[in-house]
Design a protein around this nucleic acid. Structure first.
Lengths: 138, 138
DNA sequence: GTAGTTATTGCAAGTCGTTGCAATTGCATC
DNA sequence: GATGCAATTGCAACGACTTGCAATAACTAC
């Protein structure tokens, strides 16, 4: 919580609230979610402040941002091990993916292209095992 | 051009124009680009029609859609070999990436997770060789 | 060629997210 | 604890893109 100040940013009540809410949330939250919960406690926080704070936290690698395809971007705390998400485009289910799975790709990109890929928090779309077993096409 | 009709969609002048423009474009175009060029020839086409047509062409795998991070999505003809893009977050340069590079990842996802990943047209962000050589951090 | 059906269009309004700017406020200095 | 100043906020306007809906028009069947 004090980490913001340590890196030279101001610690405002809005930011404290937003950070606290993300901390208390299990899994992903949207900006809308955060805004709703912030205004429950402190009604005059603008949604743009939520977005700006989320961007800041992302820049500081305190939260991860992922587009899981639901029309709005989702955020989660970046405390855990680096990971990614498999998103089924049939049923919408998401499952986590260890970063190790894409490490070889990262290595190959560096080796062959001299490109240092971030791939911080990826959403990989496709069809999950369950859905593939049910239907056949696609 | 007739392919739309063959799959059961109507061939309207708007669609013909939009398809022709994408065909004539080298590389990526934005919806805005397409709309501008369409209205040069036929002034009353709405931007929503452009978006809807682009979505349709994407669904039929006639165009690829990629978010290269410039605040607007880019489209290109899906005629060429399947490929992806490396996008440098320092200088903004993009370079194409063979699909073979990510094929092993696709294989591993199927093997370990039973997940059939699309990864149709990826944008991978990071730092390119040139920029990595110049600055050090990041 | 006409009539009927339904996909497609244009328009206007709506969505999520960003941004310019003046007013405010955190924080460092006195 | 008052002062100064830049970072931060709220607001309103804007950006890209989507969507509901009535009017239009492409295709089919006659």
């Amino acid at each position: 919580m004090e980490s913001l100040r340590e890196v030279g940013y101001r610690l405002t009540p809005q930011r404290m609230l937003i950070i606290a809410i993300i901390h208390d949330s299990k899994g992903h939250v949207t900006a809308e979610d955060v805004h709703t919960r912030v205004t429950e406690q402190y009604p005059f926080v603008d949604i743009s402040t939520v977005y700006r704070t989320l961007q800041l936290l992302k820049k500081l690698h305190l939260v991860n941002e992922t587009d899981l395809g639901g029309g709005r971007v989702e955020y989660e705390l970046a405390q855990e091990a680096r990971h990614h998400h498999l998103v089924c485009r049939r049923c919408g289910a998401t499952s986590p993916l260890d970063d190790e799975m894409i490490d070889p790709l990262r290595a190959r990109l560096l080796e062959k292209h001299g490109f240092r890929a971030d791939m911080e928090h990826f959403a990989i779309f496709g069809v999950c095992r369950t859905c593939a077993d049910k239907g056949q096409k696609g």
